[in-house]
């Protein structure tokens, strides 16, 4: 038996075994659970009941809609901001690069406990953000108590947390774009904006896709921000799929239903990732 044939399996074996035990098995178990319901404390087979209930559940559709709005608004804003920052940081003349880089990355490593306490204090109606806004003549914004602003708060908090993270990814990729591409372009008379759209963006396409898919997964499973800042309110306006899964399982004790929602999320992440691939136009 030649080594070259068995070698890959040996090398992949630890990962595959761990994957089977700790990922595949729980996934199957919770998939089975999604066809069960609790009757007098015991789980019994319920067919498609959880899924039909899901189909008729207003909260689920609201959560879906909210998640979609947050996704459509937040991901592009964050990606554009991250690209702008990465571009600025990529400038050779810039000093203190390392300092800026670390500072921008910091929000991604913050501990959730601090994050939730600080943001909920800052976003109060008389909190520091509204105080700062009043200096530039903007009247107090009801950040957490108005359906529209509550969504905005979630988007702002997410953007704060993940922009630097994506920036680091873009920065790495930017440093790999050959300098002569830009030189040739500026000889042809292309200004900075044109250079950005005709050279930088196409060169960054695979990275944007990569960051986009990670953000898609993150947004569809979104839980931390609504859980800590708004609790899904006011009136479900910031209810997300991640939060609804948690509530169904841990607050309403219905893990069968929670699993069904989870699988709906999986299907959607899958679809959205395929769409992103198609838009990006490559494999």
């Amino acid at each position: 038996m030649n080594k070259a044939k068995t070698f890959p399996y040996f090398f992949a074996a630890p990962a595959i075994l761990l994957f089977l035990a700790f990922t595949v098995y729980p996934i199957i178990a919770s998939f089975v659970l999604s066809f069960q319901e609790r009757v007098a404390g015991e789980y019994v087979f319920a067919g498609l009941k959880n899924y039909t209930r899901l189909w008729n559940d207003d909260i689920f559709w609201t959560a879906m809609q909210n998640t979609f709005i947050i996704f459509v608004v937040q991901v592009p804003i964050m990606i554009i901001l991250a690209m702008v920052l990465a571009n600025v940081l990529n400038n050779q003349l810039l000093k203190l690069k390392g300092f800026f880089r670390v500072s921008f990355f910091l929000p991604a490593v913050t501990s959730l406990v601090a994050y939730s306490i600080l943001f909920s204090i800052m976003l109060q109606e008389e909190g520091i953000i509204n105080t700062a806004l009043s200096y530039i003549g903007i009247t107090a914004i009801p950040w957490l108590s108005d359906p529209f602003w509550a969504k905005a708060s979630i988007i702002i908090a997410m953007t704060w947390r993940w922009t630097g993270y994506n920036m680091v990814i873009f920065l790495a990729a930017l440093q790999n774009i050959p300098e002569d591409l830009y030189e040739a372009a500026s000889l042809d008379g292309a200004n900075k904006f044109k250079q950005f759209f005709y050279i930088t963006v196409p060169q960054l396409k695979p990275v944007i896709l990569f960051a986009g898919i990670l953000s898609t997964i993150g947004t569809l499973q979104l839980f931390d921000e609504p859980f800590n800042l708004t609790g899904g309110g006011p009136a479900d306006s910031t209810m997300t799929l991640g939060l609804y899964i948690y509530q169904s399982g841990f607050e309403y004790f219905d893990f069968g239903y929670a699993s069904a929602i989870a699988y709906a999320v999986v299907v959607m992440v899958g679809i959205l990732s395929i769409i992103q691939f198609k838009i990006a136009g490559d494999e």
Partner: peptide, 8 residues
Amino acid sequence: MMIPYQAT
């Protein structure tokens, strides 16, 4: 990666 952790 797409499975929400709450489910497993």
